[in-house]
């Protein structure tokens, strides 16, 4: 057996527990429109899966003598890659951080950025034009603080704030697909989420074309499994498929790469997330100082 196995097996055990939870709570279950046969292993038998994995691993090992031929991502590797990623991010100060979920050992990688863009509807509080609204601003304007309006030390109003958009990107690990999953959303500064189309209005047109092709046709709206808020998700069912050539090429050339870097740099730009080139060096540094 492979040296990794006890560790990996133990880890997978933890994953299955999670998978059961997922089954009991259907709202949190990842739906699977395009099931990839290779991934649909029988959940009833851990051991079958394990042997399947080992066989696959051996097959890959046989194929590429010294290569690291496993194309899926262990959770431990995921965390390790994230750590490297965040480490480099700190150096760049580009905002990635690791968020622990309170009361569990789970966590996710997170980044939020702000941009000035086009938000469609004007600010929500438009009192007079909305007859259904039973609120009236006058008592405030009368009552409030005559000092405020004559505060001459205040710089005049920020007209731009309403068009500032906050993009949030969360990278989670999917046990069932053994890949990273990208959760994302965009909202205005008052916390209102934008629709997918609105969000894409602000994505570069070159990338917008890509949205019509795989894997972008697998975006769904889901609850974030760890914080329970609605997010858009790039469904992981196709991740393996488009990552395989990258990983295969890397292992063929016997060069290590950071899964997160390669994956994020291919999916990020389409949702307005750029991954600076310098991240490519993360993998190189990692090879120099592994274990």
């Amino acid at each position: 057996m492979h040296a990794d196995e006890p560790h990996a097996g133990g880890h997978r055990g933890a994953c299955w527990k999670k998978a059961e939870l997922v089954m009991r709570a259907p709202s949190r279950q990842l739906r699977d429109p395009l099931s990839n046969d290779k991934l649909q292993l029988n959940p009833d038998s851990d051991s079958a899966r394990l042997t399947g994995f080992v066989k696959f691993h051996k097959f890959m090992a046989g194929e590429r003598a010294q290569g690291m031929g496993v194309f899926h991502l262990e959770e431990e590797t995921f965390r390790h890659s994230c750590r490297q990623f965040i480490c480099h991010s700190r150096a760049l100060d580009d905002g990635w951080s690791w968020e622990e979920v309170e009361g569990s050992d789970e966590g996710y990688m997170k980044k939020s950025i702000l941009g000035v863009g086009r938000t469609a509807p004007p600010p929500a509080l438009d009192w007079c034009s909305r007859p259904g609204e039973d609120m009236d601003t006058r008592p405030w304007t009368e009552q409030v603080l005559e000092d405020e309006d004559e505060d001459e030390e205040q710089v005049g109003g920020d007209k731009e704030t309403s068009s500032v958009i906050r993009y949030e990107y969360h990278v989670l690990y999917s046990c069932s697909y053994q890949t990273p999953v990208l959760y994302f959303r965009a909202s205005t500064l008052d916390g209102r989420s934008l629709s997918l189309e609105k969000m894409w209005d602000n994505v570069h047109p070159n990338y917008r074309q890509r949205l019509l092709q795989g894997p972008w046709d697998t975006i769904t709206q889901q609850e974030h499994p760890l914080i329970g808020q609605p997010f858009f998700v790039l469904h992981p069912c196709r991740t393996q498929e488009f990552m395989r050539p990258v990983l295969a090429a890397a292992s063929a050339e016997n060069r290590s790469l950071n899964y997160i870097v390669s994956w994020l740099s291919s999916v990020g730009p389409v949702v307005g997330l750029s991954v600076p080139l310098s991240y490519a060096s993360v993998a190189l540094q990692a090879t120099e100082a592994p274990k």
């Binding site: 600010p123 601003t137 405030w140 209102r192």
Partner: peptide, 18 residues
């Protein structure tokens, strides 16, 4: 001083419909 102006740059509260 310090109460924030609303989106219309007037003294007043904001509302967000979520």
């Amino acid at each position: 001083v310090g109460w924030e102006k609303n989106q219309k740059s007037a003294m007043g509260p904001r509302m967000v419909n979520l």
